[in-house]
């Protein structure tokens, strides 16, 4: 009998009460921090998306689902540190990033832009990963490099309270702002 009573308390009353409370106090977050454009949802601020066209800042490689960024199939690659497949994938990505952005064949590439995230839904890239894409974006969109650079810098989120986490840029927010520029 005890298990039934406790199930009602912790399995129904607690989560439903929390849902009610969360919906009342923080409705935006509770429903997934959805980003809107022209009244249409274009994604969640917290869930990364694929960007393949040269005019958008690209996200990290993703192992979620078949094509990456599957919002119902969060997953990392789970490739180990001596796995040949990891090295081949990384080498391909490095080559692609260098070609797309007109970098020399031995230019260093930011790690996050060529290695997959743990969730496969990472919404962020590092500032370095955004910087090396600036020239490509500017050329593609006929914008001044300085203008794009300013936009990127405005979107850098610093460490929380100065010591928590890493500096980062939300790719979806940055790309939305990029579309607004014109």
């Amino acid at each position: 009998m005890m298990i039934v009573v406790l199930t009602v308390v912790t399995g129904w009353i607690y989560p439903l009460a929390m849902t009610g409370l969360a919906q009342a106090v923080f409705p935006n977050q509770a429903n997934g921090s959805v980003m809107m454009r022209n009244g249409e949802p274009v994604g969640s601020k917290l869930i990364g998306q694929n960007f393949t066209s040269p005019g958008y800042f690209h996200s990290r490689p993703s192992a979620a689902g078949k094509d990456g960024y599957d919002g119902t199939g969060s997953s990392g690659s789970n490739l180990g540190p001596t796995n040949q497949k990891l090295m081949e994938t990384a080498a391909d990505n490095v080559k692609k990033v260098r070609e797309e952005n007109g970098l020399s064949v031995d230019a260093p590439v930011p790690a996050d832009l060529v290695l997959a995230s743990g969730s496969g839904l990472d919404p962020h890239i590092s500032p370095q990963a955004a910087y090396i894409q600036i020239e490509r974006i500017a050329t593609e969109r006929n914008l001044a490099v300085s203008e794009v650079r300013q936009l990127v810098e405005r979107h850098i989120e610093g460490r929380q309270w100065g010591f928590l986490g890493e500096p980062r840029i939300n790719v979806l927010e940055l790309n939305l702002a990029l579309d607004e520029l014109k």
């Binding site: 990290r60 990392g76 690659s77 789970n78 490739l79 540190p81 990891l86 090295m87 990384a90 080498a91 490095v94 031995d106 230019a107 260093p108 590439v109 930011p110 790690a111 996050d112 060529v114 290695l115 997959a116 995230s117 743990g118 969730s119 990472d122 962020h124 890239i125 590092s126 370095q128 986490g165 890493e166 980062r168």
Partner: peptide, 18 residues
């Protein structure tokens, strides 16, 4: 991974930027 021309931190596979 560093030998492939990837910057530090090279152990970002499976980790989140934030």
């Amino acid at each position: 991974l560093a030998n492939l021309g990837i910057d530090q931190p090279t152990s970002m596979e499976g980790k989140e930027v934030r």
